[in-house]
């Protein structure tokens, strides 16, 4: 689905979301209230120039008292890989964007990531994965690193990696694998009303970071919830 199709299905009562290059900003009417919309679209990399505009928008929403949810549409590449972005401290810009989303959430705005295309590596962490709830549309294709690059770094032939990817969801790219490790809460049905599915998410209160528990239930991340719990228990013992 295109961003326009997604927004039309999500917000039949209308919206004023506008594009600014590969970014989206705006608001929409939803039920009795509104939903804030930000987006990183067009399969574009996220560098310092994109991150700082997204964080500005998120912080402005965070400082408002409307307690309206933020919907973050994501179809990006990885972080921008350039000498200039690293020279100027890309890690700070991406962390700042993530912190802005987490602050908005702490101040009463539900943050919902909607992954409808790609995202990868640091860009994925700073956008979709920094939201309180992450949902995806079928066909979304998140990845930490593509298999070809992974083959270079691990010095394993790509066909060996492809064979291993069939036996475990823990390393290979793809929506099913990210669902299995608990990174994505739900995959929506593109054939029915997205508004109804968003309403369902908003009607379900969020109780802490449950991604490790989901990963254990789904089998993709067997140890994380247990280990984090064991450390936290030992520290408070």
């Amino acid at each position: 689905m295109t961003p326009a199709e997604i927004l039309d299905s999500l917000f039949p009562a209308g919206h004023d979301v506008t594009t600014d290059g590969d970014l989206l900003f705006g608001r929409a009417r939803f039920g009795d209230g509104i939903v804030h919309v930000v987006g990183a679209t067009g399969r574009a990399p996220i560098g310092i120039d994109q991150a700082i505009r997204l964080s500005a928008a998120v912080l402005q929403i965070a400082s408002s008292d409307d307690a309206a949810p933020i919907l973050f549409l994501v179809d990006s590449a990885s972080q921008r890989m350039s000498r200039r972005d690293e020279l100027l401290g890309l890690s700070e810009y991406l962390a700042h964007l993530a912190k802005s989303l987490l602050l908005a959430e702490a101040r009463g705005h539900r943050t919902i990531g909607l992954l409808y295309g790609g995202s990868a590596a640091g860009a994925f962490i700073a956008t979709a994965l920094a939201c309180g709830t992450l949902v995806a549309l079928p066909g979304a294709h998140p990845e930490v690193m593509d298999l070809a690059s992974m083959a270079r770094v691990t010095k394993l032939p790509i066909d060996v990696l492809e064979a291993k990817a069939k036996t475990t969801p823990v390393f290979a790219p793809g929506l099913d694998n990210l669902v299995s490790v608990g990174g994505i809460a739900t995959v929506w049905d593109a054939g029915t009303s997205l508004a109804d599915q968003l309403q369902t998410v908003l009607a379900t209160p969020r109780a802490g970071d449950d991604r490790a528990t989901l990963g254990a239930e789904r089998g993709g991340r067997p140890a994380a919830a247990r280990i984090a719990g064991a450390v936290a228990t030992a520290a408070q013992g």
Binding site: A95, A98, K99, L102, L103, A106, A121, F124, I125, L129, A130, V144, M145, M150, V153, T154, P169, V170, F171, A172, N177, L178, S180, V181, G182, G183, D209, R211, A212, G215, G220, R221, A224, A228
Partner: peptide, 26 residues
Amino acid sequence: GVRLQEANAGEIAIAEIMRAIVEARL
């Protein structure tokens, strides 16, 4: 960064850590 042999688990772990830091700092 992320350990590529368990990249998906490592990626989500980083997101969990960032959230835990922010929640503690708040």
